[in-house]
């Protein structure tokens, strides 16, 4: 279809402008991270990598590494169960026939909720003495399973992760289910004729064929772990102590509460570096698919 420069301008200019502004803001963040900016009004006082030095080797070292460690916990403890459970459910739903229509939404609905809602809910689920989980345990005579949950600095991050697993399993499940449904039905038939059990089919037929979906799921979930902020804010506010702080939360507190804007920007840059490692390959791969 023939088009002119004016058409290109009309259709593309808004997107280009917005994308440009986004990149401009990223560059701006990088610039701020090199400045000694304290207070909300801009202070352009270049001091090189001083903010990064404070973060990586100076006064804020421990805090940064607590956040980094928690982000790492999120990465491992969140992604593995969410992916595995999602795949398991997808395969199960493929097998249960028409019951799938009823069951599928029951796993997917949490993704429609705000983190603020799920955080509020789970804060109560986890409350040590008033909470639903401990009371449920007591009701079932399992009182010794009761835990301090979010009041325990060693458990708290895992509690937050638990809420996120609940919220995102349906997402993984949906992508996997689509992948399974995309597979040619003959493979399953062949497996059945060979007398394979469900477990064998799962191992030898399903798993080798969902690599593509796994890549998408894992990439998306990694981005979720790098963005996690709302759950921390609502459920623990970074506490007990600073035990549940993650990079975005640290960034927010440093920037907006303490007004160490330069430091906050430096933390943003660290998030940026981590995210780029995932996003750029993913974008490249998506682009190639679109071109194909």
């Amino acid at each position: 279809m023939a088009y002119t420069r004016a058409h290109a301008l009309l259709f593309l200019a808004p997107l280009l402008l917005i994308v440009l502004v986004m990149y401009g803001m990223m560059a701006w963040t990088v610039a701020v991270s090199l400045d000694d900016w304290v207070g909300m009004a801009p202070v352009w006082k270049f001091h090189g990598l001083e903010n990064f030095r404070t973060l990586l080797g100076g006064a804020l070292r421990e805090r940064l590494f607590t956040s980094l460690r928690n982000n790492l916990i999120w990465l491992v403890v969140f992604i593995a169960p969410t992916t595995a459970l999602g795949l398991f459910l997808a395969y199960g739903l493929d097998l249960v026939g028409r019951a799938e229509r009823v069951l599928r939404p029951l796993f997917l609905y949490p993704i429609a909720l705000s983190f603020v809602v799920s955080g509020t809910l789970w804060a109560w689920m986890y409350d040590p003495d008033a909470g639903v989980i401990n009371n449920l345990f007591r009701m079932l005579g399992l009182g010794r399973w009761a835990q301090p949950w979010i009041a325990d600095p060693h458990l708290a991050t895992f509690c937050l992760v638990g809420a996120a697993v609940w919220q995102y399993t349906g997402f993984a499940m949906t992508l996997y289910l689509a992948a399974i449904r995309d597979m040619p039905r003959e493979i399953f038939e062949a497996a059945r004729v060979d007398g394979a059990t469900d477990v064998q089919t799962f191992r030898h037929v399903v798993i080798p064929n969902v690599g593509h979906a796994t890549m998408i799921v894992v990439a998306m979930l990694i981005l979720v772990t790098l963005k996690v902020f709302d759950l921390v804010w609502v459920m623990t506010f970074g506490g007990p102590g600073i035990s549940t702080e993650v990079l975005p939360f640290f960034m927010f507190v440093a920037t907006f509460r303490q007004q160490f804007v330069g430091i906050g920007a430096a933390v943003s840059v660290l998030i940026l570096i981590l995210a780029v490692a995932v996003v750029v390959p993913y974008a490249w791969w998506s682009m190639r698919r679109l071109a194909a």
Binding site: P153, G238, G239, G241, I242, S243, V253, R257, Q258, Q259
Partner: peptide, 18 residues
């Protein structure tokens, strides 16, 4: 100053646990 208060609260709540 408020910046210290934010850190101070973290230090104290952490102290209560360790």
């Amino acid at each position: 100053p408020p910046a210290f208060l934010s850190d101070w609260q973290d230090i104290l709540t952490r102290f209560l646990y360790s």
